[in-house]
């Protein structure tokens, strides 16, 4: 039971029930879709990139509490970052949820996802939004191919 509390921390529950930056983004010039075929999670990420800066990120979709909260917290975490910083954050986040956090990294609010590493089946849920962001940023074309965490 204690492990369950580690997974579903208050912040995660809060963001899953009231996701931030939810809905289309008017000024978006990058977009990507992500699917988790195993559980039917579906997400669309909208990004406004200006020069090298991620000016704003929104998302839409439906998924479990972990994937929704992850997407919601992602939007706050990468806003204002350079693309390279956002990619590094993705890498660090991935290490965190797979149980090998990079030492010395300040995860800020994203630290609440540390508990996911105890639930291997849920790693894909936590990282879906990040994979989708990566795909949106990597795309030079305005729309990227859908990504899948399967």
């Amino acid at each position: 039971m204690s492990q369950l509390g580690d997974l579903y921390q208050e912040l995660i529950l809060d963001h899953s029930k009231r996701p931030r930056n939810f809905g289309r983004l008017a000024g978006a010039n990058r977009m990507a879709e992500g699917f988790n075929r195993m559980c039917g999670d579906k997400i669309t990420i909208f990004v406004e990139v200006e020069g090298d800066i991620v000016k704003d990120v929104h998302f839409e979709g439906s998924g479990c509490a972990i994937s929704t909260a992850s997407a919601s917290l992602l939007t706050g975490a990468v806003k204002g970052k350079t693309r390279a910083e956002a990619e590094t954050l993705f890498e660090n986040f991935h290490n965190l949820v797979t149980g090998a956090p990079t030492p010395g990294v300040d995860f800020g609010k994203l630290a609440v996802f540390a508990g996911v590493s105890e639930y291997p089946a849920r790693v894909k849920c936590a990282s879906l939004a990040w994979h989708t962001l990566h795909s949106a940023l990597a795309a030079e074309a305005p729309e990227a191919e859908p990504v899948s965490t399967e």
């Binding site: 039917g40 999670d41 998924g63 972990i66 639930y119």
Partner: peptide, 23 residues
């Protein structure tokens, strides 16, 4: 209502109840 089957499955698992969540 308002809860994804995956979350239901994880909570039940933590109580020793094995169910399936998915399609």
């Amino acid at each position: 209502a308002g809860v994804h089957p995956h979350d239901v499955g994880t909570v039940l698992d933590s109580l020793g109840v094995a169910v399936r969540a998915g399609h």
